[in-house]
Amino acid sequence: MIEITEALALHDPGSAARQETAAREARFAGLVERQSRFVFRVAYALLRNSHDADDVVQDTFLKLYRGGQWDAIENERAFLARAAWRTAADKLRSRGRTSGPLDADLALCGGANPEETLVTADWNAAVHRLVDALPPKLRQPLALSTVEEMSSREIARVLGVAEGTVRTRILRARAILKRKLAALMEGRYDKR
């Protein structure tokens, strides 16, 4: 069958080009199917907004398609994570959003009294707000580490820092989170 197809393609170069284009489109569609959810989560880790993350996924794949080199990517997951992170960072800059205002959020959830917060707030949401309140240098590697088991090496490639730096920052972020979480649970959260 392949031989027949090749023979037909030899007789009709236009048909061969069309077949090649169709095959290329199919490969790109496969890439989108495989990685769009992952790209969404990388974008969401930074933006914390589903609609913006959706836009970032579309922008990332559109840039990739227009660039034309997507067919030659060795590690598509790492490449896409980096591309999505950059696009999300651009979107964040254009949106002018700062890191999450933890104190205001907690006040909205349960008032100024931490005990009320303990009672009323969803603990996961509380932890997420604590993460949002971390300095970007600590928050970004920690956020990426929560995306579909991204390794320290992959995170290092995305952020453009050394792998050891990523590990150190994640440990520091976790230490801060634990300290603040413990304080929250004991009802003695300070605003540091």
Binding site: Q58, H128, S145
Partner: peptide, 27 residues
């Protein structure tokens, strides 16, 4: 353990249905 469990949900947001098709349509 509590921190791990909470962090696992940090970026576990699922996109709206049809993301792949939206991407392909836009491309």
């Amino acid at each position: 353990k509590f921190l791990d469990s909470a962090l696992a949900r940090y970026s576990a947001e699922d996109p709206l249905a049809g993301l792949e098709q939206r991407v392909l349509n836009r491309v």
